[in-house]
Every structure is written in C-alpha cells, then in structure tokens.
C-alpha cells in the first residue's frame, strides 16, 4: 500500500522505498519505450531513404514534397492519433503509424538536403571515372550525404522518444504510461523518475548516435 493514500502524508518527489520495489516496472516501460522508438526510426529510415533519393533525382518533386511534408509535420501527434483511432483502434499500430510518419518527415528532408550538398565537382569526377547513375548514388552521393542523414537520425530519434510519451494517452507510452500514472494517482515518484529516465534516454541516444557517427564516418568529423 503506497503511502501517498494517507492524507497527512507528504508525498516526496522520489519515494525510494517504493521505487526500489518497482524497478521491474520501470525497466519494462523503458523497454517498451526503446522498442517503439527503434521501430519508428528504423522503418522511417527504410521509407525515407528511397523517398529522399526520388525527391532529389526528380527536381520537380522536391519543393512540392518538402512543402507537403512541412504541412503534415505541423499536425499535432495527439490529433493524428485521434484521427487514426476510429480506423486502427487503440494500440501499437496507431502509435507506430504516427511515429513512423513524423520520423519520415524529418528524415526525408535531411536525405534531400544531404544529397543536395554533394559538390558538383565530385559528381563530375564520378561521371568522368565512368560511374553509372546507381553506382554513383550508392558509392559517391550517399556516403557524402551521410553526415546530414545522421543529423536527421539524431533529431528523429530524440523527437520520437519525446513523442512516445504522448502515446500513453492511447494506452501505450512506455515511460509515458508511468507519467500518466503519476498524474492519475497524484503520486510523484513514477512521474519524476519516468520523466528523468525519458530525458536521460534521449540524451544517451543522441550521444551514442553522435559517437557512432564519428566512428562510422571519419570523413564527417570536421563537419
């Protein structure tokens, strides 16, 4: 029986006794949070790489696609989830459609910007060396666009970690579920600990991605 039910009891920001017996709850929420994020960014990347390449290759598409994406991006996630619920119900599918969608909007823009930043001289040199379009794309353009794409992955990951907490409203939420519990039960500990964990998760993910970029793309270090 948690102490916050008694009226004369002052709820501390973190009740360590309660926390120590509920570690598995936090680990399960953390795991759900990470899973939802990984699926969103992973699937988002799989969709936005070809999309970005297409929007870059066919110039006429570039501005309409990016403008349309910018408009979709302004739609609040809670509104998007609510629009989907009558069709896909409460649950993972609804959450992931929204989360993948926003990741795609972030990543596609960065793929396009990255490809645009490849200098013309480099493209000329690649053509002169006899690269076919596909080989040039895979072996010259994409590697040079990777720093921008990586920047997109970092933003998409941190953004998604924040958005996952909102899916608590539709029954998921990972750490957001514990934030909601803290609100509903008027109990500080799950709220404070889950908030801190969510912030730490976002910062750790960002640093880990920045670190792996340094290792995987040594040519982007100065950028």
């Amino acid at each position: 029986m948690p102490g916050h039910l008694f009226l004369d009891y002052v709820d501390p920001w973190i009740n360590w006794d309660w926390l120590s017996t509920h570690v598995p709850v936090f680990l399960a929420a953390l795991q759900e949070h990470v899973t939802l994020t990984l699926i969103a960014v992973g699937v988002g990347l799989l969709i936005s790489l070809p999309m970005g390449v297409v929007a870059h290759r066919w110039r006429a598409l570039r501005n309409p696609v990016l403008t349309l994406f910018g408009i979709f991006y302004t739609i609040p996630s809670i509104a998007l989830f609510a629009l989907l619920i009558p069709y896909t119900g409460l649950g993972t599918l609804t959450a992931e459609i929204g989360l993948v969608g926003y990741a795609v909007l972030i990543l596609t823009r960065n793929v396009v910007v990255g490809l645009e930043a490849v200098p013309n001289d480099v493209l000329d040199a690649a053509n002169g060396m006899g690269y076919r379009p596909l080989a040039r794309l895979v072996r010259v353009e994409l590697p040079l666009a990777l720093p921008a794409i990586f920047a997109g992955i970092r933003i998409a990951t941190v953004t998604t970690i924040g958005l996952v907490t909102i899916t608590a409203v539709i029954g998921l939420g990972g750490l957001g579920q514990l934030i909601l519990q803290g609100l509903v039960e008027n109990f500080h500990t799950p709220l404070v600990v889950a908030t801190l964990l969510s912030i730490v998760l976002a910062l750790v993910a960002d640093l880990a991605l920045a670190g792996s970029q340094r290792i995987a793309l040594p040519w982007s270090r100065s950028a």
């Binding site: 608590a168 908030t195 912030i199 960002d206």
Partner: peptide, 17 residues
Amino acid sequence: NVGRAVPSFALLVLAFQ
C-alpha cells in the same frame, strides 16, 4: 537539443503537480 529531450507531456504534468 535539450528542449527536444524534455517530453512536453511530462512538463505539463510536473507543472500541474
């Protein structure tokens, strides 16, 4: 970047508490 990492939902609930 830090702003992105702080979930807006948590911010609202904390301010409410």
